Simulated assay, not measured.
Amino acid sequence: MDPRKCPVCSSSDSTLLMQFTPEQLCLNNPSYDLDILREAIKGQEQYLSYSKCNRCSMVFCEKYWDDENLNIVYSDIIMHEKSKEKIFSIDKRRMLLNTWTNILRLLKFQGKIKLDSIKLVDFGCGWGDFLEVVNGSGVEAMGFDQDQQKVNYAKARRHRIAHTPEKLIEFGPVDIFVMNSVIEHIQDVGEIFNLVNSVLTPGGIFVCSVMDYRERFLRKSAKRLKRGLPALTKNLNPVEHVNIYNYDSVLATLEKYGFHFLATRHVLYVTDTYGLKNNMKVIHWFNLIEKWLLKLFSGREFGIQVYALKH
C-alpha cells in the first residue's frame, strides 16, 4: 500500500523525523504489554516512526496500520484495567464538565434558553465518561468507539452506543458532535470529517481536542530518541497517535472540511470568567493573544480543545 499523504495538505513530500523502538514506547506507556508489542511489530519496525510534511510541516505516521494490527493494538497491547483508571481522575472529570459548560454556553450564543431535544454524538466515547456528564433531561446522546472492552463498559452503564458509523447517521441530524482525543488516532481523516458533516446539522457545534506540539518540542524528542531515550511525552506514540497536530494544523483542518472556528477551551473559560460572555469580537482578540502566547512557549506540551460551527 502507498504511504499516507499529509492529512492536512495532502502532499506526498515528507521527511523522516522520528524512529521509535518498542522499548522506548513502553517506557512512556505503562499500560502497554512490551512482549505483545515486540511480536506485533516484528519485521515492521518502520511503522514506529513519524515523518514531517515538507509543504505544511504537519507531523504524521506515513505507514497505514492494517486492521489486524490495529485490533492487536486496541485489544491486546493496551492493558485495559490500567487504562480504565483514568476515568476516575478528578482532574479528568473537571475537564469533561468544563467541555459541557462551554457547549452549553455556545448553545446560549445561538439563542437557546433551555435544553429541548438536543442531540449529541460522542465519537470515540471510550469508557463513556463524557456521556455520563451530558446525560439528563432534554439531551439525547449516543457514543461510538472501536474498543469493544470500553464499549461493553459504557453499555453496562446504560449509555447508548452505536455499533457502526451508519447508526450515527440514522441517529442524526445532531446539534453537537464531540471528538475528544480522537483525530490523532485516525488514518483517514477525510473519511471521519465526511461522517461528521453527514451527521451534524448546519450551524451545529463541533468540538475536538488534541495535543498541541510545536517544532522545538518535537526536535527535542527526536534527539532523545536518537540517543536511545524515550520521547518527552507518552503521547508521541505512532502505535496509537498517527497524526501529531499543532494549533495551526488543527485550524487548517477545520477550514478544509467546512467548519468555522470559534474559540479554544482556554479562551471560552477566560472570557466567561471575566463576564465577556456574549462578545465574539473580544473572543476573537483573545484567540489571537493565545496563538501568540503558544508560540512563546513552543518547547512545552499543550492540549488544545477547539469549538467550531458547521457552515
Rank of each mutant, 00 (worst) to 15 (best):
C6W: 11
V8H: 04
S11E: 03
Q24V: 03
N29Y: 07
Y32E: 03
D35H: 08
D35V: 08
I36G: 13
E39L: 11
E39S: 13
I41V: 15
Y47M: 05
C53E: 13
C53P: 05
R55M: 06
M58I: 05
E68N: 08
N71F: 00
Y74V: 03
I77N: 09
I78D: 15
S83G: 01
I90C: 00
R93W: 02
R93I: 14
R94H: 13
L96R: 11
L96K: 08
R105D: 07
Q110R: 15
K119S: 11
D122T: 06
G138M: 08
M142P: 05
F144D: 00
Q146V: 06
D147H: 01
K150Y: 02
K150T: 09
N152Q: 10
A154N: 05
H159N: 08
H163T: 10
E166L: 12
E166D: 12
L168K: 07
E170S: 14
V174H: 08
D175P: 10
F177E: 02
I183S: 04
I186N: 02
G190R: 14
F193W: 07
V199F: 04
V210Y: 07
D212H: 02
Y213E: 12
Y213W: 15
K220W: 04
K226I: 13
N235D: 15
N235L: 06
V242K: 13
L251M: 07
T253Q: 06
Y257L: 01
F261W: 03
L262C: 11
H266S: 10
V267C: 08
L268N: 04
L268P: 02
T271G: 02
L276E: 10
L276Q: 05
K277I: 00
N279T: 02
K281A: 09
I283E: 11
Y307T: 04
L309R: 15
K310Q: 13
H311E: 12
